[in-house]
Design a protein around this nucleic acid. Sequence first.
DNA 1: GCGATAGGTTATCGCCGGTCACTTACCGCT
DNA 2: AGCGGTAAGTGACCGGCGATAACCTATCGC
Lengths: 224, 224
Amino acid sequence: MTDPLTVPRSSATRETPGRSRARKGEGELLRDEILDATEGLLEEVGAKEAVTMRAVAERVGVSVPSIYLHFADKDVLFYECCRRNLVELATRLEDAAAGSGTVVERMRRCGEAYLRFGLGQPGQYMTLFGTDIPDTVAPDVAADDPGRRCLEVVVRLIEEGVAAGELRSNLPPLSTAVAVWAAAHGAVNLLLTKRLQTDPHVEIPSGEEVISAVVDLSINGMTA
Amino acid sequence: MTDPLTVPRSSATRETPGRSRARKGEGELLRDEILDATEGLLEEVGAKEAVTMRAVAERVGVSVPSIYLHFADKDVLFYECCRRNLVELATRLEDAAAGSGTVVERMRRCGEAYLRFGLGQPGQYMTLFGTDIPDTVAPDVAADDPGRRCLEVVVRLIEEGVAAGELRSNLPPLSTAVAVWAAAHGAVNLLLTKRLQTDPHVEIPSGEEVISAVVDLSINGMTA
DNA sequence: GCGATAGGTTATCGCCGGTCACTTACCGCT
DNA sequence: AGCGGTAAGTGACCGGCGATAACCTATCGC
């Protein structure tokens, strides 16, 4: 009944004659459009499970299988989509770490930069860091893991601080850096999953308060 | 072609004549069986997206709609499943906080208990804390949020430590407690999502090292 | 001009979460 | 004793999902 989906629309009507999109060497162009559309939808709905391949295809103005010409599967599409912005995060952290001031000051700027980055792009942050690395992208990640690059910045900063006598670290710098990363990651995660706003009649710290509390705690922990 | 699914098997064959399961007031019994099966499957595959309602039904030996007699939807089922064990976590934390020793010692035991709990039940931890609270369970959570109970323990411990002069906290205890929780949560999250084992040729801290690094950092941060 | 092929399309698959209409077995009530 | 009400459970099915198979067609090197 009311069967508008089964109408053949085969080879006579052709109101929208497919999509006029071509140019020989320019398949990469469509690839970028797909990534843009994915990123947009991801930030609109917040989680990749809520973004369907059909929705991406529709936004781009293309059919679903066309996406699979450029990306092996949904996981790869979303990983590539998020990784584009990783350059931005790495850059911000490296800028913050390389700026002027004491190691502690620079470390504080790094922490704030990380937290603000995560909170600024919830969908992408949770897609990148919130769940297991999907099997189909795991081999790729091993060579170029986003989180690992962040970790590197912190490790070097800690080493510098210890060498300068500014920081104390009775554990290996890598272990301490992991702990610092964990604190920042956990804070972003708690805020993005709304774990701090479920109970309206309990006063809860704002995002800014959480950021400064986490940064304070971590830095105090290293200067003790 | 090869249409074994459309075979009627209507009202004559009946090889397995439904499932002999009844008893009037004992529907709750099936409910518990469903929760047990869900928990088992969840820990086997690690994520609720990978556990289908059909798989749960099959393990229990029941049909899919029967599950919906006891749980409104999949989210509610998994939330109830995980919440059962929340009692355990709350108990462990309260035990650790109420034990003997200085506030710092008890705080350390709390941190270790939290981390071990999370690492001990990956599927349930990630289901409870790893993503947004689903809409269908959110109203319920507001009244009895798992994380909130953990937070309470830490807040009281910090207040006690500050009063005893053992801890220093220039921020409100709640803010500091959130930061401590964030550190622990982030550590569990990083470990469970395998963020610390992607690169085989880089030495990475073990789970135990991460635990002690996070606990050290947090406690140092409060005693500075 | 012309065949190869990059760049698409339509149609369909199998599986998922969830619902509907229906049946069965127990139980309180007369 | 037996009968209606209802708790408990079932088979069939829906729309939507990720993914694929088979097919078409405009472009471009030759």
